[in-house]
């Protein structure tokens, strides 16, 4: 059990982080908070990929003489681009939040629903 815990510690942390982000998205009403929650969820996936790519005793995947063990470069490439795409889409989400605020006068989910029913 202890061995299992130590060797899978990273993955468990990823799951906890992911669930915290998920919880914020599901249970909290404020739209800005939801975007932060999505970001936490997203980062947990990044951490997962980078953890999978780590090789025991390896070093950063920049080839130098005298080093044989490198960590897996493929997850690094995927996550590197995902981070920049992530900030672009986050900006888009925040822009939508600003427009919602202007149209409805609120960014709280419950108030938005009341306003929708009135129409």
């Amino acid at each position: 059990m202890i061995e299992q815990l130590l060797s899978h510690y990273n993955y468990w942390v990823v799951i906890i982080l992911m669930m915290v982000g998920f919880y914020i998205v599901v249970a909290q009403g404020n739209l800005v908070k939801k975007v932060v929650g999505l970001n936490i969820f997203q980062t947990s996936v990044f951490i997962f990929y980078i953890s999978v790519g780590k090789v025991e005793g390896g070093t950063a995947p920049i080839l130098v003489e005298g080093v044989d063990v490198y960590s897996n470069p493929l997850p690094h490439v995927l996550i590197l681009t995902a981070i920049v795409v992530g900030i672009a889409t986050t900006a888009l989400a925040l822009a939508l939040v600003i427009r919602i605020k202007e149209a409805y006068g609120s960014v709280e989910e419950s108030e938005l629903q009341i306003r929708d029913q009135q129409c």
């Binding site: 800005v32 070093t59 490198y70 590197l80 981070i83 900030i87 986050t90 900006a91 925040l94 939040v97």
Partner: peptide
């Protein structure tokens, strides 16, 4: 975890640009 390229990007984005945009939204 040896992902230096990723760390670069995350430091500039996660601790720089992203909070700024959120502050502007707030």
């Amino acid at each position: 975890l040896d992902a230096v390229d990723v760390a670069f990007t995350e430091a500039a984005v996660g601790a720089g640009i992203s909070p700024l945009l959120m502050l502007a939204t707030l």
